[in-house]
């Protein structure tokens, strides 16, 4: 019960002594990376983490999990904008011709959300068309949308195939607009 009992803890590299205790449990480990994987802290602030807890182990936490959320009825029955016929039918976008006006009412971010969330559908096509109207262009290889930075005039290349300038990109991973200097090839955008 005295100080000598602690010697195996102080000499974790000693072959004989280190066999006695499992140091990952006695001495433990630097918890920084474990805390980071939990989201403690996040954005330098303390947030609740158990509501979005994916799994007890970082190795099995490779995808986000849907937390409890609540949609008030007033969000699901917005008349005239989202409804096609009756109050009870959820909104749907089934016609490229007929639904363009409804899509024009959405904010940029709603359009991005719908574009990325519903591939191979009418709504993906509709949001593509609407974003183009708003001077966004879709980059085929980056699979991201960009628009010209209004503060800067780009410099066109001599061969006329590209331009270098400042653009605002929408990053779907971080869900935010960000400004970047970029060499834009005209055949890469649509």
């Amino acid at each position: 019960f005295g100080l000598e009992a602690l010697v195996p803890l102080i000499k974790p590299d000693d072959k004989e002594l280190s066999k006695i205790y499992d140091h990952s449990m006695t001495l433990g480990a630097d918890l920084t990376s474990m805390l980071h994987s939990l989201g403690i802290p996040r954005d330098s602030k303390r947030h609740r983490v158990l509501d979005t807890f994916q799994s007890p182990w970082a190795e099995t936490s490779r995808s986000e999990v849907e937390p409890t959320f609540f949609i008030p009825d007033s969000f699901t029955h917005i008349p005239d904008v989202l409804q096609s016929n009756t109050k009870d039918t959820p909104p749907s976008f089934d016609s490229v011709q007929k639904d363009q006006q409804r899509v024009a009412l959405f904010q940029d971010e709603t359009l991005f959300y719908l574009f990325y969330k519903h591939p191979g559908t009418v709504i993906q096509e509709l949001t593509y068309l609407e974003l183009r109207k708003r001077n966004w262009r879709y980059h085929k290889t980056l699979k991201a949308w960009l628009t010209k930075d209004p503060m800067m005039e780009p410099v066109v290349s001599n061969d006329g195939l590209s331009e270098r300038g400042s653009y605002v990109f929408f990053d779907p991973q971080r869900w935010e607009k960000c400004q970047r200097e970029f060499l834009l090839f005209y055949n890469a955008i649509m």
Partner: peptide, 15 residues
């Protein structure tokens, strides 16, 4: 939310 529709091959095809 929306019916299937042929869209550009360059668009992301996984949600």
């Amino acid at each position: 939310l929306s019916l299937p529709h042929p869209t550009s091959i360059f668009f992301p095809n996984e949600p």
